[in-house]
């Protein structure tokens, strides 16, 4: 049954085989995607025609590698900018939320806490359409009452930022709150007794204690924003993010350039994941 009990050979081996099969299931699609990025063929499929780096570096005209593909490169840049802005915003507001809910008392605290958790249970598509509707209504309001045309309220780069910010902040707030709960508040009291102001305490003691959680949450926020599809789909304007751009290409047929981008994404996120894991181990 478990490792401390005697088990029959058949039981243990069938369990091993099951788990091996499970990991094959888990990694097969990623592995195949990576391998086919290097196949010397015009379609991302077998047979294997030998290796090539064309889908990364070829300047065209028959094969355009990812590093010469202006449209995809632009979408990577857009995603990158979005993710940086979103993660900074989320970390700031999420940390504020953690402080507010863990250390302060105020009326309607439970109601607000419930509202803060709401984005966890609202499907991303719904978040997307309600941001779109809300922004359009706000835009109409400003146009009819103040005769102002505000571009941010139309599907655009900034609306994507707002839409992603609206739910990623919750994740940051939860991670930072969890860390803040472990904080020994007598350290704050000691600092206050020694004459520090409240903001000095936060800056030199509490924030320092929270730093690993903030960095970890920031990294997760970056990744969530970079890879978000459901919410972004409804808010995107003339500057598609990478997932949207990839989706349009996958839907209309595929070239190994998508494999090349996927390969870069897999390698990039794996590195980020391992770094994040390393830091969270160190923290624990």
């Amino acid at each position: 049954m478990i490792r401390t009990l005697p088990n029959s050979r058949a039981y243990t081996w069938s369990f091993h085989v099951f788990v091996i099969l499970y990991f094959v299931f888990l990694f097969a699609p990623l592995l195949v995607t990576c391998v086919l990025a290097f196949n010397d063929s015009n379609f991302p499929s077998l047979p294997w025609n030998g290796g090539t780096l064309d889908w990364f570096f070829s300047p065209g005209p028959q094969r355009v590698g990812i590093f010469h593909d202006a449209q995809n490169l632009r979408s990577i840049l857009v995603s990158f900018q979005t993710a940086v802005i979103v993660s900074v915003l989320c970390v700031v507001v999420g940390t504020c939320a953690a402080f507010a809910f863990e250390q302060e008392t105020f009326p309607f605290k439970n109601l607000l806490y419930f509202l803060m958790l709401a984005p966890l249970v609202i499907p991303g598509v719904i978040l997307g359409i309600s941001q779109l509707l809300g922004a359009t209504t706000a835009g109409m309001f400003f146009e009819t009452h103040f005769d102002l045309d505000i571009a941010i309220f139309r599907p655009s780069f900034w609306l994507v930022v707002l839409g992603q910010f609206s739910f990623i902040t919750t994740f940051v707030a939860l991670v930072v709150s969890a860390r803040l709960r472990k904080f020994d508040r007598s350290l704050e009291e000691a600092a206050l007794n020694l004459g520090a102001t409240r903001f000095q305490v936060i800056r030199f003691i509490t924030l320092r204690f929270l730093r690993p959680a903030i960095i970890g949450a920031g990294a997760v926020a970056f990744l969530m924003s970079f890879e978000n599809f459901n919410t972004t789909l409804f808010l995107v304007g003339s500057q598609p993010t990478l997932p949207i751009n990839l989706y349009l290409q996958v839907r209309d047929g595929s070239t190994p350039v998508i494999n090349a981008i996927s390969f870069l994404l897999i390698v990039g996120t794996s590195c980020l994941a391992l770094v994040n894991l390393y830091f969270s181990r160190k923290e624990a």
Binding site: A28, T33, F229, L246, Y247, V250, I258, S262
Partner: peptide, 9 residues
């Protein structure tokens, strides 16, 4: 890894 990449795989 992005859901899109996994589905594409």
């Amino acid at each position: 890894v992005s859901e899109l990449v996994r589905v594409y795989g």
